[in-house]
Design a protein around this nucleic acid. Structure first.
Lengths: 152, 152
DNA sequence: CCGGATCCCGTGAGATACTG
DNA sequence: CAGTATCTCACGGGATCCGG
């Protein structure tokens, strides 16, 4: 699979999202598979949150990250950071001092991914209340029009 | 997608929607919380995949979606679609015919989210091989420099 | 026959305690 | 302080059943 993306494949990928009908051919299924796979690993709640935090704050140490991101367990924090390190999104710098001090920082790659996610954040901020309204409407509808077997 | 927003612009965007002066000041924690919460629900593997599929294909019925997205269980598909419906991202149309026929289609809101994710897809396509190399390098490093207690 | 609700089981996330 | 090891439990996957 070695493959770099060909120009054509990339153009197709972009066309995909520009809602332009793919010119003449299907997208290479291998690429499709790889991208989906990568998305699966990267489109993770914690990864996104870490990406955003580190993009804003620059270098941070373990505990500060944990504090900043409320609700993450050390296990998931370690795990997510390790995975991001493996993917080349963050660097992990260990200072061999007596109270251990480990700094995490986005690489160029990580930073670029963070930028790619910007659109999603803006979207979220823009549509917060719309979502909220949608949810309430849906719940109200569900309450008075129970689907079969949803009743006790 | 565009050249992407800077973090400062994002902060301003958030501040704007919090009805807070877009200063360099801190982001309103309530908004931060809501956005993070929303991200958590939306930054889900299946949601992203569905978003992509429906953006590309338009209206689709249940089984076709399941076929198109390999590896999703019927349960998760139902669940994710319901959630997306609740958030107002898709519409669910039931045709009361004898072989049931249910069509799913992105709303304007869903479409706009798909567009917001566009940057991530392009990023993934562009950096596939870089990630791959990173991973291999990391694994090689880990193999010859086992961290304490990682040995049996 | 399709869409999906339900049950059962395994994986993996979360909380806690321990260590260098 | 920054992890690792362990337990538990909720969530996801698969098979089965059901209503139209």
């Amino acid at each position: 699979m070695n493959g770099l993306l060909t120009k054509k494949q990339l153009r197709q990928a972009k066309a995909y999202y520009a809602h332009v009908p793919p010119a003449d051919a299907e997208i290479d299924p291998r690429v499709e598979q790889l991208v989906n796979d990568l998305i699966g690993r990267v489109a993770d709640k914690w990864t996104m949150l870490l990406l955003e935090l580190l993009a804003e704050q620059g270098e941070m140490r373990f505990t500060r990250i944990a504090d900043a991101i409320g609700g993450i367990s050390q296990k998931m924090l370690t795990q997510t950071l390790r995975q991001m390190e493996r993917e080349g999104l963050v660097t992990r710098t260990i200072h061999p001092v007596i109270p251990p001090r480990v700094e995490y920082k986005l690489t160029k790659l990580g930073l670029s991914l963070g930028e790619a996610f910007c659109g999603v954040w803006v979207w979220a901020a823009e549509h917060l209340d719309e979502i909220e309204r949608s949810r309430r409407a849906f719940d109200a509808r569900a309450a008075k029009a129970p689907s079969p077997a949803r009743r006790a």
